[in-house]
Amino acid sequence: MATKSALTQQLGVVAGFDDPRVDLEQYRTPPELAAHLVHTADLQGDIEGRTVVDLGCGTGMLALAAALRGPETVVGLDIDPAPLSTARENERRVATSSSVAWVRGDATAAPLCPSGPTTVIMNPPFGAQTGNEHADRAFLSTTADIADVSYSIHNADSVDFVESFAADEGGEVTHAFAAEFELPRAFDHHDSDREEIDVEVFRIEW
């Protein structure tokens, strides 16, 4: 198994969004955070030999991180065709040993029915935009339907919500860790060139 730092370095070539959509809260997942999440999942036996689904994959950061760790199958799903095109280019840049199936579809009504052990990895929208509140709830609902384990990134202080939602769906949060998410200036409402926000990553068994 490659080290977490080696995985971070491999992901450094992954390009972000050319024209990010504010309504979809499109941000490139930082390579360091993606590597940390996938490395942790791999140590738990949740990547190698399994089907891995990246819901709302964007330009493919998490899906490509997983593809570097020997999964059976990787699927990247996103509703926006533009970042999926970038994701395919990123796959060539990263030169993963496992290929990724890039699928256009709505993560809140995913056209997927994976067979066998399935891990969902995702950086869902936090629901920070007006009219998009609780957007991560719909992503978790899909996850409960298709996965037996998941790793997801949420706003800091989301533990009560995530634990309650998981319990309602017959799941359980088994691990949680805090992290930082670096946001470059991408939209007009951003006041600074770069901002770091506190996030939490949760492992849930469904």
Rank of each mutant, 00 (worst) to 15 (best):
R137W: 14
S141N: 11
R137A: 11
D157F: 09
S152V: 02
D145A: 13
T119V: 11
D160K: 15
S152W: 03
T142D: 12
P81A: 10
A135D: 06
F126M: 10
P81R: 12
I153P: 01
D168H: 08
F139T: 08
C113K: 13
N155W: 06
D106F: 03
V162I: 15
N132A: 14
D160F: 11
V149K: 03
Y151N: 07
H154Q: 14
T118C: 13
V120L: 05
V100R: 12
D136F: 15
A87Y: 02
D145K: 13
T119I: 08
V103W: 10
G116C: 11
P124I: 10
I146K: 06
R104G: 03
M122Q: 10
V120Q: 06
V103K: 12
A147F: 01
G171A: 08
H134T: 07
R104D: 05
F139V: 09
D157L: 06
G131W: 08
S115A: 07
R104E: 15
D106A: 06
A138D: 14
E163L: 08
G105C: 13
E89N: 05
Y151A: 11
V94M: 02
S158C: 12
A128T: 12
A82C: 04
N90D: 05
I121M: 02
V149G: 00
T130S: 15
T118D: 05
G171K: 07
W102T: 01
I153L: 15
V162A: 04
T108E: 12
T86D: 03
I146F: 08
G171L: 11
L112I: 04
S85D: 15
A87W: 04
E163M: 08
G116M: 11
R92Q: 14
S164P: 00
S98W: 07
V159Y: 09
C113T: 11
